[in-house]
Design a protein around this nucleic acid. Structure first.
Lengths: 402, 402
DNA sequence: GAATCTAAATTTAGAATCTATATAAATCAA
DNA sequence: TTGATTTATATAGATTCTAAATTTAGATTC
């Protein structure tokens, strides 16, 4: 009947241990005195908690020594360090055309990376197999066993609710294998979390991107697809069925913004240019036999092609309108634009910012992502680390450094 | 240095007392055994906590008796009840044209109500004075003293951030007195919380309106103004400067949706109708000397006036578009339409719902508010009660029933 | 009316945890 | 070697919980 268990004395230890571990996981080597200051606990408690954490494998004790660089007086301190090799996490980006897998230690530092194209993939089962190959590659490269992996997070281009379920069954989201997470978990034994790719992008940007210290954030993912991750007060928004931030149905972004849309527009304009020999464009040639990709359009624009430039101008104008709408409705402090289109949009950020000022009373800052291709997989690593931090004191470690 | 204080044994009592009080505040009379089941605590702890809460004034003990209606066997139970008269809260709606004040007990039941028009108000100071008159009226009517008031919440039609500050300084939001909360607090001694009116409407709908049990919610306030309150996973969104859900700058709602916009449109159409005697409309007469209000348009539409009906049709079409945009971006389970326009829109809900289905994969339910005029003030009461619940164990009560 | 039954209340003992204080340890400097 | 200094550890006391034993208050039975 009771929703949460009763608060008993061991809860105190849990709370204090969790807090101390949180401090250690972001700081470097710390002494007992340093932990007293950082946590507000007394010396006796700090040492008791540290002893517990060392026994569990979360913390390693270094040789005693002095902390301050000044005159070393008094008994040397015990020195504690978060054991970043106590386990590993996987961040997996399952995109439309390819997958990216990051294996990271508990500090979040990448220890191995792998990617695979989905070009040969025909069925969902094959897709899962390809993802698994990339996973195995990272584990082998770093010499990490399944027992050492504490969690994995997978990002997909579909709405995912708070419980990691895909509730929307729709043609737009049919491209991936709904059994992916169950299959990976079954094969390897580690928990696999599922999350929307744009949401993970938001986590990534806030952790290691442009949005550090930012609590109210919109990340616009403009790459293979056009979507957004929304964060209010540091919390991701999901909506009732995981659809928060999705824009597939938004009229204003119809067909433009993602790379497929750009390529299609380029093919049309290229064909039109064939009929009008006055217009000089490299897209005309491309419209024939070779497939026109968004990358080719970016390249053409970079070398001054007028038609390509016109297409990108249109893309950024539409992007600006979307940013304005999101900025008005969510009032974020910052909007980060990520994905393949981000690179091209970078030079247009000032004009987007300028347009924004006219639309809202408190326009957000606008920035381009610097995480590039890894925007989703880095966020997935962060998601997996969040899970580990939440469950740290319940997890059984198989530590390397003891 | 430490952000939160260390967890010490007294924290356990706080946690358990808070949980038990939460159970009692929503349930009716409860026995010790009932509380054991509801909280998961042991009998000894339940009684210890109850004794504490009785001493503090939050709980009253009734004569012992048997709970179950069956054969009464064994020692009679002690019976506990939340002391809903332990204090009172105020919910204050400061609108553009008037203010509504609710005085409620700790269960949230209204014990007094008052309203005042701002028609005679010229300055912000005068406005505060009028609000204060309404407050005094409720206190006098219920015979409640300032000492018994534990908190008040004020709703205004402007962005308010999480700390209750108005950060946006803009012509749209200049209508009220920025010193209102400080003044009330100074006059009466109770804490005064400030919050955006649409956000309060969302709290109100979730508490006592159409959105009970709904965690992902949008409330569209279409009355004196057009704004929305957004809730994700039961939490209100604010954005970085309190602007989340504001739509003043949204092109798609420009000038229509609020009552002032409706009145203006009506005046224009009325004037046009004067020039075209073929059109039959009561608005023509109204366009002359008397001021045309939205209420008159609603009334005219109700009696079949074609021009008025045309205006309302336009309003609902635009409303539908806004609902669709919010539904796509936030993926709520439910959209509640409240405010003066809500009544008129009620009959058009089915068609709005229908349009929505074409726009989104998982369209939300759409409902009209049943809280009427009180939508914001009821939410303000809920906001104040939330504050009281959060701070219950720190507050010094001046109980009536001891 | 006394004994018995029952469920609840209360008391007691034990465990976990914290703080505060006292004691011990390790290092440098004189 | 002794003293100063800082840190680590041990001990005592307080708070709070659980679990088990005991008491209590009313209903039922003999």
């Amino acid at each position: 009947m009771a929703t949460t268990p009763a608060a008993t004395p061991p809860l105190l230890r849990r709370v204090n241990a969790s807090k101390l571990l949180g401090v250690l996981s972001t700081a470097g080597v710390m002494t007992g005195t340093g932990l007293i200051e950082a946590t507000g606990l007394t010396r006796a408690t700090v040492h008791a908690v540290c002893n517990d954490l060392i026994a569990m494998g979360w913390v390693v004790e270094l040789d005693p020594g002095h902390d301050a660089p000044g005159t070393p007086v008094g008994r040397p301190s015990r020195r504690f360090e978060f054991n970043s090799q106590a386990g590993y996490v996987l961040g997996i980006d399952v995109g439309a055309a390819k997958t990216t897998v990051l294996l990271a230690d508990l500090r979040g530092d990448t220890v191995a990376k792998a990617g695979r194209s989905f070009a040969e993939v025909r069925t969902p089962t094959e897709q899962t197999e390809v993802v698994n190959q990339a996973v195995l590659e990272t584990l082998a490269a770093a010499g990490v066993s399944d027992q050492e992996v504490l969690a994995a997070a997978v990002g997909i281009a579909a709405p995912v609710d708070r419980d990691g379920n895909i509730l929307v069954d729709d043609e737009f989201w049919r491209r991936f294998d709904a059994g992916l997470t169950a299959r990976l978990s079954e094969l390897h034994g580690w928990p696999v979390l599922l999350e929307n790719d744009a949401n993970l992008a938001a986590l990534g940007e806030r952790w290691r991107g442009q949005a550090r210290e930012v609590d109210d954030l919109v990340v616009l993912l403009a790459g293979e697809r056009f979507g957004s991750g929304l964060m209010d007060s540091g919390r991701l928004l999901h909506g009732s069925r995981g659809g928060a931030g999705e824009m597939v149905y938004l009229k204003m972004v119809e067909g433009v913004g993602d790379t497929a849309g750009i390529a299609r527009t380029a093919r049309e304009r290229g064909a039109k240019a064939v009929a009008d020999p006055v217009v000089q464009t490299s897209l005309r040639a491309l419209a024939g036999d070779k497939p026109v990709t968004a990358e080719l359009v970016f390249a053409a624009a970079a070398s001054g092609d007028q038609v390509a430039l016109g297409i990108l101008d249109e893309v950024t104008t539409r992007t600006a309108r979307v940013v304005a709408t999101l900025a008005i409705l969510f009032n974020p402090e910052l909007v980060v634009i990520g994905g393949a289109v981000a690179e091209a949009a970078k030079s247009l950020l000032p004009s987007i910012s300028e347009q924004l000022a006219g639309f809202t009373a408190t326009p957000p800052r606008v920035a381009a992502s610097s995480l590039g291709d890894a925007i989703v997989s880095v966020g997935a690593v962060r998601r997996a680390l969040n899970y580990v931090e939440e469950h740290a004191l319940d997890l059984q470690l198989r530590a390397r450094r003891a």
